[in-house]
Write a protein that binds this DNA or RNA. Sequence first.
DNA 1: TGCCTTCGTGAACAACGTTCACGGAACCGG
DNA 2: CCGGTTCCGTGAACGTTGTTCACGAAGGCA
Lengths: 208, 208
Amino acid sequence: MRNEDRRDRLRMALIDAAEATIAADGLAALKARDLAKEVGCALGAIYTAFPDLDALILTVNLRTLALFERAITEVTIAPPPPTGAASPAERAAAADTLVRLAVGYLHFAAENPARWRALFQHRITQALPDWYLVEQVRLFRYIETPLQVLRPGLGDRERALLARSLFSATHGLVSLGLDEKLMVLSEPVLRGQIEIVVGALGRGLAEG
Amino acid sequence: MRNEDRRDRLRMALIDAAEATIAADGLAALKARDLAKEVGCALGAIYTAFPDLDALILTVNLRTLALFERAITEVTIAPPPPTGAASPAERAAAADTLVRLAVGYLHFAAENPARWRALFQHRITQALPDWYLVEQVRLFRYIETPLQVLRPGLGDRERALLARSLFSATHGLVSLGLDEKLMVLSEPVLRGQIEIVVGALGRGLAEG
DNA sequence: TGCCTTCGTGAACAACGTTCACGGAACCGG
DNA sequence: CCGGTTCCGTGAACGTTGTTCACGAAGGCA
């Protein structure tokens, strides 16, 4: 077997094992020695495939983002092309899409708690790599599309900024609502809160 | 010197030193050995004053909450007594109070980044002690008061829940906006986003 | 004062991520 | 197919963690 193939196999095995551990027991349960034992390689071999565990975690997180995108595309029907001024019905549909996206975010977080936590528990030491940021930017377009209907007057920069802010607010709701900190809310209760808050946000943005 | 006094002195010295370290270099810089050296006690002495470092961190966080309350009371003028139905002007004032509270939260986080991060970076293993939760509940009243004007029809339980949700949304905005993750926004830009989002929230809640 | 309790001491422990000299396997020119 | 060179996995070892514990010293009381 060629050397390069072995490295690729090792990389994949490590990613799979790390993903399984994170999904099952959370990021805190990911230990280099356990990982080596599960994969069947030596401890040091991990560091021939990845510079450190952070890089491995980031790769797992990229998979989580892909999973999340698949979940999100299921709740958002193909968006209507934003041509010219939007009718009131179109604006209502756009506001509804924002709510569905937020509820979809909650649903994904509730279904994949450990995976989802790993996206944010991961303390960044260095700057995030470009391929990870590109994925983030791409996902924000799902929010920007309904925003373009709700607030057609916004420039690209302003709309992107507002999309991030809407995500941040939703993330705050989900994060503090599901995490055991501050309060522990059941998913239905939390879903109701998200519908209230994001719904009010949509109304307020449409008239402002 | 009495034994009990010595323990109290040690406790205070540890809290002071831990607070200084956290405020200066963040939670990650808090090491048991450094702490013992700064305070001038043995490593094991820390564990005669606190069960573990988590308890010490929680005590420092309580001080941060007190600091935050002092900062918050400065931006919220004495709230008008919510007697009967609110006039449109009173509702506008209540919505404005919500925005001022959110901006005040941002301001505190920006002025005390390390202290503020410690409130949330701290991974909770056990359940939070009661004296800490009581403090949290007390602080939420600052949000509940303007909410009572905006939505007089809500019951106590619903209002408390909505207050927590409004805080969560604001926290998301501040957390992801200031933390180096996802985006790095300057405080003025972030303040503008908070005014837009929380403003829209206030409008949407008032009419809903 | 003398005994007993109580408490601080710091070496030791366990667990962690990461490194590195060594030994063996893959590659390649002859 | 062989021998030299290069490269790579190995796992013991290193440097840090937080936390513990037998021991020795110091306070408390008769």
